[in-house]
Simulated assay, not measured.
Amino acid sequence: MVGGHYTYAEVPLFDGLFGAERNNYDKVGHFFQGFVPALIAREILIRLQVVNGAAWRNLFIVSVCLAFSAFYELLEWWVAAATGEDAEAFLGTQGYAWDTQSDMWFALIGAITALICLSRRHDKQLQRIAKTTPS
């Protein structure tokens, strides 16, 4: 809600944070753009038993998150192309040529962080559910 109130480029908390020339608030959003879909994809893949093996499942989860992030970046580009002159304000690149790539990098970091930090806990919760659910 903070980003919606100020726009990404103008969130006061992130102005000049750590000496950055641009406001990096949008990177927080892109981190969670990888983090949250990773949890959802993991839940679906485990419950539906789509992929066997944790390594393949994790690769698939990260790939899904990056595909989602890439689609979002394409959507931003399409809207920017359609709006013309207001594209810079909508994109929030703030003159940073590698904004799209860094956005996807933060989504990748978010997806991997979710898998590393929450996989064991998620597995325990799924085991607990399996024990209480009648077959």
Rank of each mutant, 00 (worst) to 15 (best):
L75C: 01
K131E: 12
A107P: 05
I46P: 00
I112K: 02
A97G: 04
D15E: 15
K27G: 02
D15G: 01
F68C: 10
F90C: 08
S102A: 06
W98R: 13
A107V: 07
A80T: 08
A107R: 07
T100V: 14
D123E: 14
L115I: 12
V11F: 05
V2C: 06
L48N: 09
T133K: 12
Q49C: 07
Y25W: 15
W77H: 09
W78F: 12
L108D: 06
Q33F: 06
G4Y: 01
I109H: 01
G110S: 06
A82W: 03
T133G: 08
N58I: 03
D123G: 04
F68P: 00
A82K: 04
G53H: 05
A9Q: 13
H122N: 11
R120P: 05
A87C: 11
K27V: 06
H5V: 06
F14P: 11
F106K: 02
V51C: 03
D26S: 10
F68H: 07
F31M: 02
I129M: 10
A41V: 14
A20L: 13
D103P: 03
T93M: 08
V28H: 01
G16R: 05
I129Y: 08
G3Y: 02
T93K: 13
A81R: 13
Y8I: 01
G3K: 03
N52P: 03
F14V: 12
L91Q: 15
R128M: 04
N52Q: 14
A55I: 14
R120V: 12
E10D: 14
R22T: 14
A81P: 00
Q127K: 13
R47A: 02
R22Q: 10
R120T: 13
D123V: 10
D99Y: 04
V64S: 01
